[in-house]
């Protein structure tokens, strides 16, 4: 059986500097994996290389997504095939209304999948349902994408996009950063609502806090560009007590 995501010996350089030094990781449908690690361990690099960001070039190994070579696909193809990255720092796009952006994205993905595009009415109906589920205010759709959004609103907007695009593999990059406890709960509720047997998730986080709300099946520690330890949710609690010192020392 092919895995949802199969990362084999992945090495990645950024600006000529080796950041990921051989990652092996498999994510099956229905699983939630957490990647934890100190700053600079390569967590965000892993997220970006999976989503296809320019400048994050694989220098070795391979990544199979549902059996296909992920690096053969453009960022938009990956998205249409069901890969979704929730950004640590969602990008502000002045002049493009959030509504327009979401409709473009939904219909681009539907076109790719050979489905009919949603017309204006169908789209509005879909959005009404989704924003209600996520407790998002109507005016967030009318404003320009992420422009003037608070930290919490930006993250909620990421979860909204995820809910609308219904990915198979969701990668959440530091989704908890910059959130107060209420915003964190709201975002976590949104993510939990999307957990399903068909969907895999890769949660990247520095702190254990998020994992109290989104409980992972597997936890991995990334340090020095390698996964140095894997375990179940209890590993996260352990790290909360001991910190990353043991790993950063080992990786240096």
């Amino acid at each position: 059986m092919t895995s949802l995501l199969d990362i084999r010996g992945l090495r990645v350089a950024v600006d000529g500097k080796q950041i990921l030094a051989g990652i092996d990781l498999r994510v099956e449908a229905g699983e939630v994996h957490a990647i934890m690690g100190p700053n600079g361990s390569g967590k965000s690099t892993l997220a970006y290389v999976l989503a296809g960001r320019e400048g994050y070039e694989p220098t070795g190994g391979e990544v199979l997504y549902r059996g296909k070579n992920l690096f053969d696909m453009s960022p938009e193809e990956r998205a249409a095939e069901g890969v979704f990255l929730a950004f640590q720092y969602p990008v502000e796009i002045p002049g493009v209304p959030n509504n327009t952006f979401l409709k473009e994205a939904v219909n681009a993905v539907r076109r790719y999948r050979g489905e009919d595009e949603l017309d204006a009415m169908q789209f509005i109906k879909l959005m009404r349902v989704k924003i209600k589920e996520l407790g998002i205010k109507d005016d967030m759709l009318k404003r320009a994408v992420n422009v003037g959004f608070s930290g919490g609103e930006k993250k909620r907007n990421e979860v909204l996009q995820m809910a609308v695009l219904e990915p198979r593999l969701a990668i959440l990059d530091e989704t908890d950063s910059g959130l107060d406890i209420d915003a964190l709960k709201a975002v976590a509720d949104g993510v939990n609502a999307l957990r399903s047997a068909e969907r895999g998730m890769l949660m990247i986080t520095h702190y254990q806090r998020l994992l109290d709300y989104i409980v992972p099946d597997h936890v991995h520690v990334l340090a020095g560009g390698r996964i140095v330890r894997s375990g179940d949710k209890n590993l996260a609690r352990e790290l909360e007590k001991t910190g990353y010192a043991e790993f950063t020392g080992a990786a240096a």
Binding site: A51, E54, V91, I93, G95, F101, E104, V109, L165
Partner: peptide, 28 residues
Amino acid sequence: DRSAMFYLRSRGIPEARARGLLVEAFIA
């Protein structure tokens, strides 16, 4: 803006259309 381009494309919007959206916003 390259990061805006990547953000749009990472949501499935093809490159040409992503560019069109940003150009449109700029001229608007």
